[in-house]
Simulated assay, not measured.
Amino acid sequence: MSRARKPDWLKMRPPSGRRFTEIKQILRDYDLHTVCEEANCPNLGECWSGSDNAPGGGTGTGPGTATIMLMGDRCSRGCNFCDVQTGGMDPLDEDEPENVARAIAEIGLDYVVLTSVDRDDLPDQGAGHFARTIRAIKSRQPETLVEALIPDFQGEPELVQKIIAAEPDVIAHNVETVERLQWPVRDRRANYEQSLSVLEQVSESSDSYAKTSLMLGVGEYDHEIYQTPGDLREIGVDVVTFGQYLQPSRSHLEVSNHVHPDAFSVWQRVAEEEFDFLYCASGPLVRSSYRAGELFVEAILRDGESVDAARKAARAGEAQ
């Protein structure tokens, strides 16, 4: 099986720099995993180094961004796009919530993204562990903004409520792709309606921003892409990101096509102007926890606005 050759706009610089090295060492000291490394994210060097080349407007003066992956480096599911290993689950590390909080304080992050592997093997699928980590961070550094990028928890409302009760600033859950392609892109235990139900619960019963992400280039049609933000806005999702799927290895799902940057710009306009998302980050190298979305949310939350106030302000601006 051959891998599609990448166009020039997907060329990436290798990770480097003092800040990158510092963050990597601190994470190793606390025995923590990041999705940046486990999923071979193309923006690892940029985000960890606080690069000034960020399309979302990074200045290069910030502390950098890392997405911490909780509950181990092995997942109970086997999505065909993902490079995280499957099976052979380890017991939870009960010290992880506090270790994460300590590492974030030592790194100096004022915005952190927490995500996790799926843990269908656990009675609560890891929701309690995830919530404890959020609370540990907020207890140690109340000013730190926390984005929780959560699994679907098999659509069980009481588990989603555990995350909501921990009061992260943003709750994200990725639909990943259009409705028709949920399989073969995602594990068969995941599905479009289940993911929408999670996001709807976040938007209806929490004070957190609701956020999701789609990969393009897996065989979707334009009309299917257009339908998806409509479905998301109907249930109250605030922020959406679009990025290019990149095949991690020859054993993973093949890339159907490389979407041109101009097309990503079109989808950003569609999301923001036609569907009234508060914000959309869209580009070939954008990922769900990409810093462009973080910068937007941080700007609003640092101004002291509530989610409802930010939504009302955005609507007022669009109506003028």
Rank of each mutant, 00 (worst) to 15 (best):
V255K: 03
Q125L: 12
V170F: 04
A292G: 10
A309T: 04
V255Y: 06
E220T: 08
D31H: 07
E46S: 04
L109T: 10
R287H: 14
E38R: 10
I137A: 10
V239S: 06
V286P: 08
P55I: 12
L181M: 10
E305T: 14
C47W: 07
P7Q: 08
G126F: 02
Q247L: 07
T133A: 05
Y209W: 00
R132D: 12
L149H: 02
Y245S: 11
L145G: 06
L285T: 12
A190R: 01
W267N: 04
I68W: 06
A314Q: 07
S282K: 05
V239C: 12
E224V: 14
G217R: 13
C41I: 06
D90F: 13
G236M: 06
A309V: 10
A105E: 10
S208H: 02
D303S: 09
E298G: 09
Y279T: 04
E193N: 08
A105L: 13
W9E: 11
D31F: 03
P168C: 00
F264C: 03
C47G: 12
E158N: 15
G87A: 09
A148N: 03
A281S: 14
R233A: 03
A39W: 10
R3K: 04
E272V: 08
G155Q: 00
R3V: 05
E37Y: 00
H252I: 02
Y30E: 08
E156V: 14
L159I: 06
S16Q: 01
F277T: 12
S2Y: 08
P42L: 09
V240L: 15
S139R: 15
L196Q: 06
G17A: 05
Q201Y: 05
A292I: 09
D110W: 14
